[in-house]
Design a protein around this nucleic acid. Structure first.
Lengths: 131, 131
DNA sequence: AATTAACCTACTATGTCAATAGGTAATTTA
DNA sequence: TAAATTACCTATTGACATAGTAGGTTAATT
């Protein structure tokens, strides 16, 4: 199940895209519009900044804004950044040590097919599709 | 991410289908073939029995066996039984109280589309496809 | 009676989720 | 330069899920 962090992050990016007026948008406004605790959103935007998806500026007139056009953001990269991984199962996760049963496993191809389908879906969805 | 309980359950059902000789198959054998702790599998098969997916018989010559033909088992129903839910997000879960923001939520249709795709995938996959 | 195997209750360590709390640093404006 | 605004930082918490383990009881067969 997709966590609130991932889902809220997509909503933040979408909110920034929708309310873009060329300037910076304070987190307070996003929190109010999205009805999400500003305190919790701080954690999320911090990671989005660290991941290079949005930019923040302190002080009056400050806030956050996108770094690219909405068509350039895939939902997949946002989820992957927030959740740390988009793997459907542990053995397909990046950095997972190779499973000795992989050759004999009857279910591996099932999970791999699902994994591929999921990634294709979310990486082809762009923020511009949500506005 | 799909939990070990869900994945192991699919492997148990697949193992029972593959090694079906008309009789009952002891858990010990399944655990050995699948290289999964028998103790942990006990928890899983108990839920499979309770859910009516397999049948167990005690005593010598006992064990477990399927209740239907392998083509009649979808991976989806196994996962749903073990994980309790297959909802992609909390607000689409069965029994979730209706979200007041549903009308305004820009992301709801995205999650709904993903949810549908996932369910379609797993409910159309049968155990007979894995043997 | 012995053996086999399912079935049952309970426990536990670890980790993640979804936040909250309280502060510090940076920037603008009066 | 002081006040206001806003991002940014570290730490903590309660609740819950995950992935098992431990040890015993019941049922069925030989």
């Amino acid at each position: 199940m997709i966590s609130t962090k991932g889902r809220y992050a997509v909503r933040v990016i979408t909110d920034l895209a929708k309310n873009n007026d060329g300037g910076y948008i304070p987190l307070k406004d996003i929190a109010a519009r999205q009805e999400i605790s500003k305190k919790y959103l701080e954690i999320i935007v911090k990671e989005l900044v660290r991941g290079g998806l949005i930019a923040g500026v302190s002080g009056k007139g400050g806030g956050y804004r996108l770094c690219r056009e909405p068509e350039q953001y895939s939902v997949g990269e946002i989820l992957e950044l927030m959740e740390g991984s988009m793997a459907a199962v542990a053995c397909l996760d990046k950095g997972a040590d190779p499973c000795p049963r992989a050759e004999n496993c009857e279910t591996l191809s099932l999970w791999a097919e699902y994994d591929r389908m999921t990634k294709d879906f979310f990486y082809s969805k762009k923020i511009s599709d949500l506005i």
